[in-house]
């Protein structure tokens, strides 16, 4: 199944989803949190991880996020967001053979933020990020 079809299944097909751009230096984002997850293992920027978001989210209380990992042997996906009190949004163990390494959910943000997806494989960690540049109606502080 193509990504486009999957996004339609998730009800995200009507929005202009933006493939993430690979970070030049993954260590710049969520440095401490990333290190707490991966330890001292190297983290490779990888555009086979796609984050599907709205660049300008309409409602900060319900911001749709979709992650698709085409990195072979994806065992875990971790979603992080910067600039908020709790950085880690979700973590899914995708090691079971039946589970496709994809996840979509909605998150609540108080301001624009960079979302980072970490993917664990037997050969190491991979990362990609995308930025939500603005929010419409934000949730209360």
């Amino acid at each position: 199944m193509h990504r486009r079809d999957w996004l339609k299944q998730l009800g995200m097909g009507s929005m202009s989803v933006l493939p993430a751009t690979v970070l030049a230096d993954a260590s710049l984002v969520h440095d401490t949190v990333v290190q707490s997850i991966v330890g001292h293992a190297p983290v490779k920027p990888d555009d086979r991880i796609a984050l599907y978001i709205r660049e300008h989210a309409e409602n900060g209380a319900v911001v749709p996020v979709g992650i698709v990992s085409d990195v072979p042997d994806t065992r875990k996906i971790v979603l992080l967001v910067d600039g908020h009190a709790r950085t880690k949004v979700a973590e899914i163990d995708t090691s079971h053979a039946m589970l496709v390494p994809r996840l979509s959910t909605h998150i609540q943000l108080t301001h624009a933020a960079t979302l980072t997806a970490l993917v664990e494989t037997p050969s190491g960690w991979h990362v990609n990020s995308a930025q939500i540049k603005s929010l419409g109606e934000s949730c209360e502080q």
Binding site: R86, V89, A90, I92, T94, L99, I107, Q108
Partner: peptide
Amino acid sequence: VANLELGPLVSR
């Protein structure tokens, strides 16, 4: 088949 940990930033 799936284990998902969530944080407080997931929407209501």
